[in-house]
Nucleic acid binder design. Structure first.
Length: 495
RNA sequence: GGGCCUAUCGUCCAGAGGCCUAGGACGUCACCCUUUCAAGGUGAAGACUCGGGUUCGAAUCCCGAUAGGCUCACCA
């Protein structure tokens, strides 16, 4: 345990695009852990790769974090004593410590160009040898070194790793992990452009920002021994590491990424970026609940929980070490559960945007009536468009005749049913769900139909859809004139 | 290919040597309810990867095999 005493965690994304759903989980775990112990959670921006920098990414990232309800105590927009919290603003610090390592014989300057290294790597691959830097410039003579310096050749700073023995690392999730030093490469710490690599920046920043626990994706585990050696080279106290499992595609093959977009059982593309989940109508509380429940679980067989209660239990133990498939179906179910927990008024408010985004003109009083009907029938907010978008369309689009015709029925019997219904409904003055039902229901005996057939065909005739809000409620909302008009149109389709 | 990690129902999790004839959830199927579509209720099918140890006793510990994953950049 870190002797600083207080628990400090951080989320350190690089601003190269939107936030990955797995990244949000990493942030969530760090946040929950800090909150559990009453410590601090920091946000740090790792913008050390100038080639991949995306100026809009920071704002998108902050948006996603705030949407999910993750508040950071130090970082961009929050300030803090130990900033700046953007790595590109800390360059002199990294350079200073890289030089310190060189001066203390823990690191050395290497003068190969990127092209030279690339060529070397290709040759190694061609000869089926392990790839990696061959340490040529670790053994430069003083004369050679002086000549390169005199030429003003650009250089990188590489960590001077032990050539033999083992590096024994410890991770609170993965346990003890050992590496043969012979397998390690003299990793670049400072690039020729003066920017640090992740490795240097991680150790320097987490030291000076007094991070007590590093929770990051397990992708970093292979470079843990390098970081371990770096901490020792500096003589600084190490934080506790917790490497979180990766989220794999729902089919379990490969990690989730936008490059190889995951697909669900129905063939729909599953979003990878948090931004897409926001756009698709997932609730932040549902996403957070879901994320907390993969890679970790609340326990006691409880699936739906308040995040504050989860924080009380989240002490860093019981984090799963194994990578796991992304359970999309469960996410949809959790989202549906959260939608059902909303008050109808709250839901109505949230439904407006997806409807308007679909190009519909939303009438507030209709929306208030539709929301409770949609509530048990949608899994994401966007589902409302397909389910009940027709309420807000100026033009009625009738369904195809064959979808109006129900099981064991034909055009003729359907037409009769529609005509009889039309006649009965035309006489209903108190145009309510109950009255409509009581008036139309007796038709089933008269026509020898069951509820499913009669109400089914009326649903399709009136809504133009096979899946919709319930039939009589829908009629009540659109009103008598419109209901009769639509029934007439459908009757016309039966010729 | 090298290094490292992991391994319980289709999927996500519970299980820290006897509470396990392995529990929950999603999904699937059946039935009930019902105003058709949903939601809700009840129930069913469904797993400890394999092989060796250790132990009186192993899903749980150890070893090996197998499988899957991550990673091998002047990217993070």
């Amino acid at each position: 345990m870190n002797s600083v005493g207080s628990i400090r965690t951080r989320f350190a994304p690089s601003p190269t695009g939107s936030l990955h759903i797995g990244g949000l989980r990493t942030a969530l775990f760090n946040w929950m852990f800090a909150r559990h112990f009453g410590g601090q959670f920091l946000l740090r921006i790792e913008d050390t790769d100038q080639t991949r920098f995306d100026p809009t990414a920071l704002q998108t990232l902050i948006e996603a974090m705030r949407w999910a309800g993750l508040h950071w105590d130090e970082g961009p927009e929050a300030g803090g004593e130990l900033g700046p919290y953007v790595q590109s603003e800390r360059l002199p610090l990294y350079q200073q410590w890289a030089n310190w390592l060189v001066d203390n014989d823990k690191a050395y300057r290497a003068y190969e160009t990127a092209e030279e290294l690339d060529r070397m790597r290709k040759e190694q691959q061609a000869r089926k040898q392990p790839t990696g830097y061959n340490r040529q410039h670790r053994y430069l003579t003083p004369d050679e070194r002086a000549r390169f310096e005199a030429e003003g050749r650009p250089y990188v700073v590489r960590l001077k790793l032990p050539l033999e023995g083992k590096t024994h690392c410890e991770d609170q999730v993965q346990g003890k992990v050992s590496f043969d030093n012979a397998d390690l490469r003299d990793t670049v710490l400072l690039k020729a452009d003066g920017f640090p690599t992740y490795h240097l920046a991680h150790v320097v920043d987490d030291h000076f920002m007094r991070i007590s626990h590093v929770m990051r994706a397990v992708e970093w585990l292979p470079s843990l021994p390098v970081h371990w050696q770096l901490w020792e080279a500096f003589g600084w106290e190490k934080p506790v590491y917790l490497h979180l499992p990766v989220m794999l595609n729902p089919n379990g093959k490969g990690k989730m990424s936008k490059r190889n977009p995951p697909v669900d059982a129905q063939g729909n593309v599953i979003p990878v970026m948090v931004h897409d989940y926001i756009k698709d109508g997932y609730l932040p509380e549902a996403i957070v609940n879901f994320l907390a429940n993969t890679g970790w679980s609340y326990g006691d067989d409880i699936e739906i929980f308040d995040i504050q209660d989860a924080i009380k239990r989240f002490d860093g133990s019981r984090i799963i070490a194994a990578s796991a498939a992304f359970p999309v179906d469960k996410l949809k179910w959790i989202n549906a559960e959260y939608i059902r927990k909303l008050t109808p008024e709250d839901l109505a408010g949230r439904l407006r945007k997806p409807l308007e985004d679909a190009g519909l003109t939303v009438d507030e009083s209709v929306l208030q009536q539709v929301a409770p009907l949609a509530q048990p029938r949608i899994r994401t907010l966007n589902d409302v468009v397909a389910l009940a978008g027709f309420f807000f369309k100026s033009e009625f689009t009738p369904a195809a005749a064959e979808s109006i015709i129900q099981k064991k029925m034909d055009t003729a019997s359907t037409k009769v049913a529609l005509q009889r219904s039309h006649a009965l409904i035309a006489d209903v003055d108190d145009f309510t769900t109950q009255a409509l039902h009581d008036t139309v229901q007796p038709l089933t005996t008269e026509l020898g139909l069951n509820n499913s057939q009669l109400f089914g065909l009326l649903r399709v005739a009136v809504t133009g859809q096979t899946i919709s809000t319930p039939t009589f409620e829908t009629m009540e909302i659109i009103g008598k004139d419109e209901t009769l008009r639509r029934l007439s149109i459908s009757i016309g389709l039966m010729d």
